[in-house]
Design a protein around this nucleic acid. Structure first.
Lengths: 252, 252
DNA sequence: CTTGACCTTGACGTTGCGTCAACTTCTACA
DNA sequence: TGTAGAAGTTGACGCAACGTCAAGGTCAAG
């Protein structure tokens, strides 16, 4: 007693296309193939198909399902491993949701998220590539968790400290002092100190190329107008860049 | 002042490949293309790129991002819509996690999940295609939520009721009474009544083709040995099928 | 002039099928 | 028995967002 492809598809709650796919990848072959080329399935195939569909509904990939059905992997271990992945995904989603909510809130509050807010708390996404490349993905992830994991008041304090630093830079730049002068160099020191508070930056870790990082950062401030805006525009950013370079060359 | 593709990629924290992709799909074109074919980007492009990356990090798809940047869609609305999707995903994941956990638990408890447990509480996945086709996806989703949303004691009660029905069927089949006889017909009535307790089945809704459903169900019991096992094997299942058919023809 | 770094345009791979397209086979009815 | 319509077959493209070669031009430095 066997069924046609459509029949077994309905019995099991899937489609004939999926069954052909399973045949193609060798996950489930028909029990019999007619001389006309038609696929026919028997009870054993139905049972196997239902196990496949059950595991798939739990979110397992087809290769993983193949392993389980081949007996190469115990069901519990496959599922346990899968569970870890699911939990990670859930975590990621939760953080993403929080992030979107914060963004919407900010937008509704009239904040210019694309310019100012991106700088609030230091835009770590900015350096993701660089950070991951130099210190591994964990470093970036750590920084990300750090910022997202802060309480509102902590974030507020951080923002104020950041803003104060920005104000002082602008004042210095406008006062006409030299980037290499004592006042600017003190600001540069504070800037690096401030950077040290950001996990994921070399300044916060031992053994990193802090010097190159700080110099590159200065260039960024000039190159990116959104960053530049925090230092009073391009001229101010150039001042910061120069001061940081002098400081880095001399002290890092 | 502009940057090469690698430079801007590093500045913004992405890859040159992604930038070429964005160019290909028209999301972000270089501000200038050299006579050698090289792509060059200026400050405006950098800002646009960073907005793209920000939105992408929030999980938006590239087409959606294109809409936002084209001003065709307000940011808040795009994000709000996206938020809904994220929450749905989170929900789905949560249910899947619970499901996987239950399955692992069952496996560790030594239960033969693939045979017996699938029948516990009626395997609604079995009829997903059919259910969705006839009553829409909501019906299936409702049934799914129903089972997953039950408390343990509720599930237990349901299992016992199900088991009792199975025992009675087996006893009747073995006693040698006729499928069309009063005893078997009373069991059939109970069976349909029991079915009515399962959301998503036609028996639980008004206006469905209950008759065809019940008859088809009987066939299923015979065809699928796992179902058959609940009725004492193939012979028992055949008895159930015959009794259900007679009952359905006469009363539904 | 050579070497190496960087650029270009294809084009395939990824995940699990949905969805035509073009054609053959089976089933049922006049 | 001719034929329509349902169902079967094998390709092959599409999707999301790039990663990853491959093969070959361009540029800056020694």
């Amino acid at each position: 007693m066997d069924w046609s492809i459509q029949e077994i598809a309905k019995l099991a709650g899937t489609t004939s296309r999926a069954l052909r796919h399973y045949d193609d990848i060798g996950l489930l072959e028909p029990s019999r193939i007619g001389s006309n080329g038609y696929r026919y399935y028997d009870g054993a195939a139905l049972v196997r198909l239902q196990r496949i569909l059950l595991l798939r509904e739990l979110g397992l990939g087809l290769p993983a399902i193949a392993d389980v059905l081949a007996g190469e992997t115990a069901e519990t271990r496959a599922l346990a491993g899968h569970l870890g992945w699911l939990r990670q995904e859930q975590d990621r989603l939760a953080r993403q949701i929080a992030s979107v909510e914060r963004t919407i809130e900010a937008l509704e509050g009239g904040e210019e998220i694309m310019a100012k807010d991106m700088f609030d708390g230091f835009d770590h996404t900015q350096y993701r590539e660089e950070v991951e490349q130099r210190w591994g993905p964990e470093a970036y992830a750590a920084g990300d968790r750090w910022w997202r994991g802060m309480r509102d008041d902590e974030r507020q304090a951080w923002k104020e400290r950041t803003a104060a630093l920005g104000r002082d830079w602008i004042a210095a730049a406008e006062s006409g002092v030299a980037p290499g002068g004592a006042e600017a160099q003190e600001l540069a020191r504070r800037h690096v100190e401030w950077l040290a508070g950001v996990p994921g930056t070399p300044a916060s870790q031992a053994g990193g190329d802090v010097k190159g990082y700080v110099i590159g950062l200065g260039e960024m401030y000039v190159a990116d107008e959104r960053f530049a805006a925090n230092y009073g525009g391009e001229a101010g950013a150039a001042f910061v860049r120069d001061a940081l370079r002098v400081y880095a060359e001399a002290n890092l």
